[in-house]
Every structure is written in C-alpha cells, then in structure tokens.
C-alpha cells in the first residue's frame, strides 16, 4: 500500500525508542498502524492496551506523548521529521497516601 513513495521522501520519527518511516502527511496513529504498532498506550486503572479507535479525535484513546508533551491525540497530529513519540502509561497520582 505504501510502496510507491521513494525512501528519500519518507519522514522519519521515533516511537518507543525505535525509528519509524512513514509517508509525508500521515498522522502519527496511521504511521504507527502502517508498521503494525497498534498499542499506543496502556490505561491507568487496568493497564489495558488502547489504540486507534475513532480516527477523528472524539474518543481520546490514541493518546501518546509527543516531544515531551503528554496526551496528544495521535490520529490528529501529522508526523514531523525527528518527532519523538512515546506510548503513555499510567498518569495518575499515587492512591492512599496522597501525592508523592
């Protein structure tokens, strides 16, 4: 499907420490989906895997950290060269004893 773009025109970015190539204009979610990276985060409460669901920015499942900024919706953000994307884990305060 994506074999017609020359390597020189592809965009390179980082996901979870690995380099990923994608076509210019693709969203982070689509670019990751193309290389079968379907798990974008794990949830706070049950550590459940989540990924691309609605594709239009209403479900807030596809949240990733981009260049240090958390809670970015991967389906809405186009990939930029050199972008550093990391999957999100739990983002909650410790329970019980207050915030550490």
């Amino acid at each position: 499907m994506s074999t017609t773009t020359p390597r020189s025109e592809m965009v390179q970015f980082e996901f979870d420490g690995q380099q990923v190539l994608c076509r210019p204009g693709q969203s982070v979610a689509a670019a990751l989906w193309a290389v079968r990276e379907t798990v974008l985060r794990t949830t706070a409460e049950h550590q459940a895997p989540r990924g691309y669901f609605c594709g239009m920015g209403v479900c807030f499942d596809c949240l990733v950290t981009i260049d240090g900024r958390p809670n970015c919706q991967a389906c809405l953000v186009p990939v930029a060269p050199g972008m550093v994307v990391t999957p999100q884990g739990a983002a909650r305060a410790e329970s019980g004893g207050g915030v550490s």
């Binding site: 379907t38 989540r50 990924g51 691309y52 594709g55 239009m56």
Partner: peptide, 13 residues
C-alpha cells in the same frame, strides 16, 4: 477496547 477494534469511519480514514 482492544487495539484493532475501530469504527468504520476510522477504517475509511
């Protein structure tokens, strides 16, 4: 909620 489950519109996109 499993990755791989999406809406038809998401697939179309």
């Amino acid at each position: 909620t499993l990755p791989g489950v999406m809406t038809p519109g998401a697939a179309q996109q």
